[in-house]
Write a protein that binds this DNA or RNA. Structure first.
Lengths: 247, 247
DNA sequence: CAGTGGTCTAGACCACTTG
DNA sequence: AAGTGGTCTAGACCACTGG
């Protein structure tokens, strides 16, 4: 029997379904299938890799659990993009005057194209000479600033954003990244900390200097795992809540 | 063919492995197997429920994903207790002077047996006449208080703790619950909030009044899902950090 | 209707643990 | 050596989607 058509050389010590999983990740990262379009069917994959459909299913199960794929009975298996809309809602509870949850709008206050500091440069794996795009935004609910954001992007990947008129930036940046720069966020890591409001925070967010502020620090990466966005979001701690289930 | 020996009446609209999962939960909650001892083998369960081992595996997969069971190749499948040790470490980073992570010790400052307030009474589903045990603890690292805790327990389930000498309370309460009261924590929900230090916080935790404080509010439940512990933990926000992966 | 994923079977053989 | 869970097969049939 033949070892079948792996795109990348598999690790033979691993079970077949793990090898298969890894190979599928490679093919997804390589862009073999369009975002949110169906990948090859289980039967096709079974034939392609010369394994039974049960083994294909197990590999796909892993990727579904990882949030990389979603299945849809009768339709197919699809590449899933992470749902960042809910991300801020995980940490901050924003409500309009009538109590309905709302998504804040956004306004870019400042953009500059400069050499970043060491932390950002190393996080984004940039060369020493490379410049970055730095955005300062506020996010508002009913005209009231509730979050302030600092965003850093490597210029090479995001050139179109260096010249886009500030008024053309939309509330959500990730669709913009996709459309204008063909950069797709596949995953992210967020770290929460509590700080005390600086005078900048105080004037932007309309809170007292020294009052508690939540800082959410996010690093977003592409399907290959390369980080390409550094973001820091600050908001008044009074709007913060977070819930965890332990089992 | 016979419908096989379910302990509780299964919902026929659900797939077999879901029915099986639910039935296994009932049997676990009923105490059919001792904590952290092996449950029936996959082959036995397949015979018992009259399904193939593949279906049994899928049911057990769900419970493993839920954190109710763990498998151990060659040994068996075991009931798992939640790992609460890591819980506080998820939110607070405690280090000793030499940088090693440490578990804080504990000291009970006060115990009273009283009627609880409405929030605690309804959370713990207690009758209006029922009394609760209220503990106030501090947790210390190298003699320094880093967390303060308020704990409420329904008296009926925790009678032995109403009279236990305060010095006999241990750093970890859950082993005590198990040994003295036969109460086993199966799951919990935690909610995080940020508050400003009260004067009580200030004197207990040695922080400034008004400085940010993290409050972790936990409700712990047994295998049947009945909540039986209400706990609130407060610590200086400077020791707080939390990390999330988004996919 | 054809095609997809979802459920389920009845095995086989492997890897690991324990006596 | 006996018993456990771990991997894998080669199917069958069901439930849902879309043309």
């Amino acid at each position: 029997m033949e070892a079948a058509s792996f795109v990348t050389k598999p690790d033979d010590r691993l079970p077949r379904y793990q090898q298969l999983r890894d190979d599928l990740v490679s093919r997804i990262a390589a862009g073999e299938w369009a975002l949110e379009e169906a990948i090859a069917t289980e039967a096709e994959l079974g034939q392609f890799y010369n394994v039974s459909t049960g083994t294909v299913r197990k590999a796909i199960d892993l990727l579904v659990a990882d949030g990389v794929l979603t299945r849809s009975q009768g339709k197919g298996t699809f590449i899933r993009r992470p749902r960042f809309d809910s991300s801020l809602f995980r940490f901050f509870r924003f409500k309009s005057r009538d109590g309905e949850p709302v998504r804040p709008t956004a306004r870019v206050l400042k953009r500059e194209v400069v050499k970043p500091g060491d932390e950002i440069r190393s996080t984004l794996r940039m060369k020493a000479s490379e410049k970055a795009i730095h955005l300062s935004r506020v996010r508002l609910i009913e005209g009231q600033a509730v979050l302030s954001e600092e965003i850093w992007l490597p210029r090479a990947r995001f050139e179109p954003l260096a010249t886009l008129p500030l008024g053309d930036f939309e509330d959500l940046l990730y669709p913009l990244y996709e459309r204008l720069c063909r950069q797709i966020v596949a995953s992210a890591t967020e770290i929460l900390k509590v700080e005390q409001a600086t005078s900048d925070d105080a004037s932007l967010l309309n809170v007292a200097v020294g009052s508690p502020v939540i800082q959410v620090h996010r690093v977003a990466s592409d399907f290959a795992g390369t980080p390409f966005e550094w973001r820091s979001t600050r908001g008044a701690a009074t709007t913060f809540q977070y819930q965890v289930e332990i089992r």
